[in-house]
Design a protein around this nucleic acid. Structure first.
Length: 739
DNA sequence: GACCTGCTGCGGTTTG
């Protein structure tokens, strides 16, 4: 371990490292020491889970503040309360040895601990962006003294912030803090810890848009651990009700039931994760697998885990996984994708195509124990074909997308870049209110300089800003007083005064699901649940006793039967690169992965059958050369491009009066002739002066972010248009297609 | 055809 970087650490930190029994530091830990101790640059540390990012940041940062006396030396910001609690436990030992205080500070942390830290701020503060926002708004005077010796800001799970509303708020809050502490000329170094990211340059720009100090990048070596993988195909049969009796029908298994049987056989007896993509499917698989345990008279080891389940149910399952004493399979959504400490599991199963390549990678990373390979099993269902099958089914698009994502991950090492060019006017409105609340009154030019000029609402022009401020005046959110300063209006006071103000993202209204006084979790208010109906929730079956609309409570009692409720949710977006890869696979007729000159096959025989069905339809229609085909009375447009371009084509066709439908990247134009649609598409090439906002004018529901309903129509069209459409790329594509 | 995250101050009850 003797090397110069390690020698620069505080001796007590060195001793702590020896005490852990580590013979060497990991590569990222070693590389981080010099730049962090120098403290002249920002830093992005990018590596996969369990590569030691936390220590890479904290070993040198703690060394640098080891002799600080007054005030917090390190401000650590995390997107999750659970992660703050995990990190507190991880840092306790090291900080004990340094005689340094660590204070976890979020909505659920102890009042006593917060009080102590307020009287004697010292060492490390672990906090959420929302709690930091509340400190800025309510205690900015105290902040100035508590942070007077602040040396570092460490941001954990940085990829979770990039491009989102919370990311916007985080940047604004960090910048406001730097201004409050008058540190513009000696900026506080920001250290961002992140999973492997798609677009590194974008990430470096995003961390400090003003670029007042440079940003360095440290990337961990890709882990060499091997991966065992199989994709399995299933066909959903249409039951032929004419020739079989009712009894026989009940014997026919749906594809999901068959998948549950296969999962039961292969997973029972060890610990695994099953990612099922939606809360409804998660509940369904958890209960099917539990039923199989009951039927076979063995103890249940399959449990659901998702964001609508109560904290208690979730932590029980997390700690059961962590203990590693009982075989445990969690059927889960992205709640177990990253962050929380559950140790490693033997294998990961993915039911239906993953939402993104980035998330597929995170999921695989959860599997594989010491010296054993990671194992991924993917279960894909396609519908049995008949005379009425749609083009998407005939092309076997879900299977094809899964194959494309696996190839992009393993062969190209490609992940989706985050979208950092959105407007986020909703968050800007929030920040205007927050800054006014912090200072009491602010001049419009000061607001503009603080929030927009420095760059994190960079796409916002002075004109946009004026429009927004005047709209806010009209709505009585703010008032301009004689001195020209803006202060809170009546509605503004109301919003800012309620505790729900601090979070900048939108949350739907929910019912609580309660059994005998114990809360199992929540359901969205628009899911229709009636008394006496049967539901599946938390992996068990219930009958609904009562629905209290006033108190928003659903009372349940154990029962047999029932189905998982719908949880609702928005749409998803597939990137151009994935659709192009899908096109390439069918064009070459080969989905296999090349490795050292060999072709690796990873598809089971049923999956191969489905693949060849899709491929033969592709060839029959010559889709390599035709992006438009006539099927009966409908014309199908198949661009093999991402959802932004598909949405744009869809909107253009709809506004030209066509009857259109869209699914999985295929647009169906009903009751139309090929030549008519072709002519229409050709005419769109002259639409390059149409803006994304123009297309958004015709969209009915554009309310996506928390304060969208308070925005002027023009700004709402702008932000929705940029999110959903891409006219320029669409016109370019139309030209390239020779249209 | 989707998923996830967070916030206050105070009043009540339980525990040491």
């Amino acid at each position: 371990m003797m090397n110069s970087a390690f020698d620069q650490l505080d001796t007590r930190v060195q001793k702590w490292v020896y005490k852990q029994g580590w013979d060497t530091l990991r590569d990222i830990q070693e590389m981080s020491i010099a730049p962090i101790l120098a403290g002249k640059t920002d830093l992005v540390i990018s590596a996969s889970t369990a590569a030691g990012k936390t220590e890479a940041a904290f070993l040198p940062a703690c060394s640098a503040i080891a002799n600080n006396k007054d005030g917090f030396g390190i401000l650590y910001i995390s997107p999750l309360k659970a992660l703050i609690n995990d990190q507190y436990r991880r840092l306790e030992g090291l900080c004990d040895d340094l005689d340094m205080t660590v204070t976890p500070w979020h909505g659920d942390s102890l009042q006593s601990r917060k009080k102590k830290a307020k009287q004697d701020p010292e060492g490390i503060l672990l906090i959420t962006p929302e709690s930091l926002e509340s400190m800025l708004m309510r205690e900015s005077g105290w902040l100035v003294s508590a942070f007077e010796n602040l040396k570092y800001i460490i941001i954990d799970e940085y990829h979770a912030f990039i491009g989102s509303e919370r990311g916007c708020q985080l940047q604004a809050v960090m910048h406001r803090l730097e201004c409050l502490l008058e540190r513009q000329t000696s900026p506080i170094p920001r250290i961002a810890l992140s999973a492997t990211l798609g677009d590194m340059d974008g990430v470096l720009d995003y961390l400090r848009p003003s670029k007042s100090i440079p940003c360095e990048l440290i990337v961990g070596k890709q882990s060499q651990s091997s991966l065992k993988m199989q994709v399995r195909g299933y066909e959903e049969k249409e039951p032929d009700t004419s020739e079989v009796s009712d009894e026989e029908i009940s014997d026919i298994k749906t594809a999901e039931q068959q998948i549950a049987l296969d999962l039961y056989d292969v997973l029972r007896g060890d610990s695994h994760l099953v990612f099922a993509n939606s809360r409804q499917r998660t509940e369904n698989f958890a209960v099917m697998l539990s039923d199989l345990c009951e039927k076979n008279h063995v103890p249940n080891e399959f449990f659901p885990h998702h964001g609508s389940l109560s904290k208690e149910l979730r932590t029980d399952l997390e700690s059961r996984l962590q203990k590693e004493t009982l075989p445990t399979t969690a059927v889960c959504t992205m709640t177990l994708e990253l962050g929380i400490d559950i140790g490693k599991v033997k294998s990961v199963a993915q039911v239906t195509a993953p939402h993104s390549v980035a998330s597929l990678r995170q999921r695989i990373g959860r599997s594989g124990r010491r010296d054993t390979p990671a194992i991924l099993r993917m279960y894909i269902t396609e519908k049995e074909l008949n005379a009425n099958s749609c083009v998407g089914d005939k092309l076997r698009l879900e299977l094809l997308q899964s194959l494309a994502m696996i190839r992009l991950l393993l062969m190209e090492k490609w992940y989706e870049p985050s979208d950092t060019h959105l407007y986020h006017f909703s968050t800007l409105l929030h920040q205007i209110l927050a800054v006014i609340a912090q200072w009491g009154g602010v001049r419009p030019d000061q607001l503009w300089a603080l929030l927009c000029k420095e760059g994190f609402f960079g796409a916002v022009t002075v004109e946009h800003f004026k429009q927004l401020v005047s709209q806010m005046g009209g709505l009585n959110l703010i008032i301009q007083i004689g001195s020209g300063e803006l202060v809170l209006g009546e509605l503004g006071e109301q919003l800012v005064g309620h505790y729900s103000f601090y979070a900048v993202f939108k949350t739907p209204e929910e019912y609580r699901v309660v059994v005998e006084g114990k809360t199992l979790g929540t359901l969205p208010i628009d899911s229709v649940i009636l008394p006496d109906s049967y539901i599946v929730f938390g992996g068990r079956r219930w009958i609904v006793l009562d629905v209290d609309v006033e108190k928003k409570v659903i009372l349940v009692s154990p029962a047999k039967g029932g189905k998982p409720p719908k949880f609702g949710g928005g749409g998803m977006s597939v990137n151009d690169r994935i659709r192009k890869e899908m096109f390439d696979i069918y064009s070459s007729g080969d989905y296999k992965i090349s490795s050292n000159g060999a072709k690796l096959d990873f598809l089971d025989s049923a999956g191969k059958g489905l693949f060849h069905e899709g491929l033969s339809f592709y060839k029959q229609k010559d889709l390599k050369n035709n992006h438009l085909i006539q099927q009966g009375s409908s014309v199908h447009v198949i661009p093999w491009m991402g959802d932004r371009i598909v949405n744009t084509l869809y909107a253009m066709l709809a506004q030209s009066g066509f009857d259109v439908d869209c699914s999985a990247g295929v647009i169906e134009v009903e009751k139309a002739q090929l030549s008519t649609v072709q002519k229409a598409l050709k005419s769109f090439t002259s639409m390059s002066r149409t803006t994304n906002a123009d297309l958004a004018k015709h969209v009915r529901n554009k309310i996506i972010e928390k304060y969208d309903h308070l925005l002027p129509e023009e700004l709402l069209n702008l932000s929705y248009g940029e999110r959903a459409f891409d006219v320029r790329s669409t016109v370019k594509w139309l030209y390239e297609m020779g249209l």
